[in-house]
């Protein structure tokens, strides 16, 4: 396994929780974390068709001298070898480029605004941009460390949902944890969703890994979310469309992230399955 997870370390107790979450995730999925300790509040991520400038909030730079030992200590305690990312290139002297060839990235719900904003129902604009552009899935960690023992995939039949389902199977395979699928029945019937799965040759995987496929029959999606186990890693696909579209069209993913406090693994529109 040579999967890597990018973690941007925030040197305070909140950041410690996030790092613990990353470590837990890595151990489950057989990846290893690569820690970036920011030296400036800004960095750039060059994706395939987008460049995202991430403006970190000030707390990332707090007490810079202890950041590396702190992170190293947490990792060593977890039995992992600390690996730190040194930016190779700089767009400007205060603007390092962080390369984007990772397999996962861990973000708290917000990295550019004050950490006081972190809570349920708010995902910062930078995190959204990263999700939108990234080739890798983004782990949106819950504010405090929360181990998970099962996997819940939200499947709505779209291309992205299929990608999310594939990712779910991958994680179920390497972690050996049970997987549940949740589907909100919309315009199409149950059979439609199963047909999508069949068309993508995923039937075998469904038989092998899925313990239960929940269908939400009526439209009260929010209430149904109570059925999602509290200790599950929630995997879902998300389109990165903006606030206005969200208000007009509505979006499952917004509802989910506003309601669930679980760890979310979000598959963006540019996610490419690993070969």
């Amino acid at each position: 396994m040579d999967h890597q997870l990018l973690h941007i370390f925030r040197n305070n107790p909140l950041g410690r929780e996030t790092l613990l979450q990353s470590i837990y995730f890595c151990k489950k999925v057989g990846a290893f974390p690569v820690i970036y300790i920011p030296k400036t509040t800004k960095f750039l991520m060059y994706f395939d068709n987008d460049v995202v400038q991430v403006d970190l909030d000030k707390s990332y730079l707090d007490d810079g001298d202890t950041a590396q030992p702190h992170a190293a200590e947490i990792l060593t305690q977890a039995g992992l070898e600390p690996r730190f990312l040194e930016p190779k290139h700089y767009t400007a002297s205060t603007l390092p480029d962080i390369h984007t060839g990772f397999n996962y990235m861990c973000c708290p719900r917000s990295i550019s605004d004050m950490s006081s904003k972190i809570g349920i129902g708010y995902i910062g604009p930078r995190v959204r941009r990263i999700v939108k552009s990234a080739r890798f899935p983004v782990l949106i960690a819950s504010p405090v460390f929360k181990p998970w023992n099962s996997i819940a995939v939200f499947f709505g039949g779209s291309v992205n949902a299929v990608k999310a389902l594939r990712l779910g199977f991958h994680i179920a395979r390497v972690s050996g944890l049970p997987l549940e699928i949740f589907t909100q029945i919309g315009k199409s019937s149950k059979e439609e969703y199963q047909r999508v799965v069949k068309d993508r040759n995923l039937e075998k995987d469904v038989d092998q890994y899925v313990t239960q496929w929940h269908y939400f029959e009526n439209n009260n999606f929010e209430n149904h979310l109570y059925e999602v186990p509290h200790d599950a890693l929630v995997i879902l696909g998300a389109y990165g469309h903006g606030v206005i579209k969200h208000m007009v069209v509505g979006s499952k993913w917004e509802t989910i992230q506003e309601t669930l406090g679980n760890n979310l693994l979000v598959v963006g529109p540019n996610f490419v399955a690993w070969r």
Partner: peptide, 10 residues
């Protein structure tokens, strides 16, 4: 928060 770069070299 442009991170004053080099301008044209950028």
């Amino acid at each position: 928060r442009e991170g004053a770069g080099h301008g044209v070299p950028e």
